[in-house]
Simulated scan of single mutants.
Amino acid sequence: MDWRTWHDEYDLPGSWMARRLRAVQRQIRAVLDESPPGPLRVVSLCAGQGRDLLGVLADHPRRDDVRARLVELDPRNAKAAEDTARAAGLTGVEVLTADASRTDHYHSLVPADLVLVCGVFGNLSDEDIHRTVGFCAQLCATGGTVIWTRHRGAPDRVPLICEWFEGLGFERRWVSEPDAGFGVGVHRFTGQPQPLAAGAHMFTFVGYDVLDDVNQSSG
């Protein structure tokens, strides 16, 4: 999978990726709009080119309150995110070219007010999705928000992911409709975050194409 060219579909206005991006951006904007005054911490796992967060921060009144870390393994996507952030003058945004599954990349910015797990769950095994949801309770501050995505194709794991979040003290704020052509979820953490485990591995990024082949062969 070429994850650099994969992002090109975001530029097609009617594509499901473009529509999902707009949905995620609306939710990010709502979180920023509703946040109390003061500094805001944001972390983004497998951030890609950062189009979701950077597209909102560029013209948002809270842009200078935000300190964000975008973690992305593909150096081409990380550079694209870095270039976008610098062009927009977003001095509080850091782009880290690294394995987003490693907890050590987030320690100085958690617990965070906003945790983005977009484009991740569709590329993980069910076990690793569950495991990553558990780590979100360490990444997220009390009252903070997790915005996540997952496709609605078979097997549709969106209802189960909601159950996993809600079983850990997250309150459902919004979930896209089943027929939207994509899945976006927003959960607010009402519990007390535990210290983020040092040196932990949250997930293995398998890739949706590999998982699709596995599901078809097992079906």
Rank of each mutant, 00 (worst) to 15 (best):
M1Q: 14
W3R: 15
R4I: 06
T5Q: 12
H7S: 15
L12S: 12
S15C: 04
S15A: 12
R22I: 11
A23W: 05
Q25K: 07
Q25R: 14
Q27T: 05
I28A: 06
I28T: 13
A30M: 13
L32D: 02
S35I: 13
P36E: 01
V43F: 03
A47Y: 07
G50H: 09
R51I: 01
L53I: 11
L54M: 02
G55H: 11
V56D: 05
L57K: 11
P61A: 14
R62G: 01
R62D: 00
D64N: 11
A68I: 09
L70T: 07
P75I: 15
A80S: 10
A85L: 00
T91E: 15
V93Y: 09
V93Q: 10
S101W: 01
R102S: 02
R102H: 08
T103E: 00
Y106M: 00
L109A: 13
L109V: 10
P111L: 00
V115A: 00
L116T: 09
L116H: 04
C118Q: 13
G122D: 04
L124A: 13
L124M: 12
S125Y: 08
D126N: 09
D128P: 10
T132H: 03
F135W: 00
Q138I: 04
T142Q: 11
I147Y: 04
T149W: 07
P155K: 01
R157L: 15
R157E: 09
L160A: 13
F165W: 01
E166N: 13
L168N: 05
G169L: 00
G169W: 00
F170I: 08
E171H: 15
R173D: 12
S176N: 03
P178Y: 06
G181I: 12
G185D: 04
P195Q: 11
A198P: 00
A200K: 07
T204D: 14
V206A: 03
L211Q: 01
L211H: 01
D212A: 15
D212V: 13
D212Q: 12
D213N: 05
V214S: 02
G219P: 03
G219Q: 11
G219R: 14
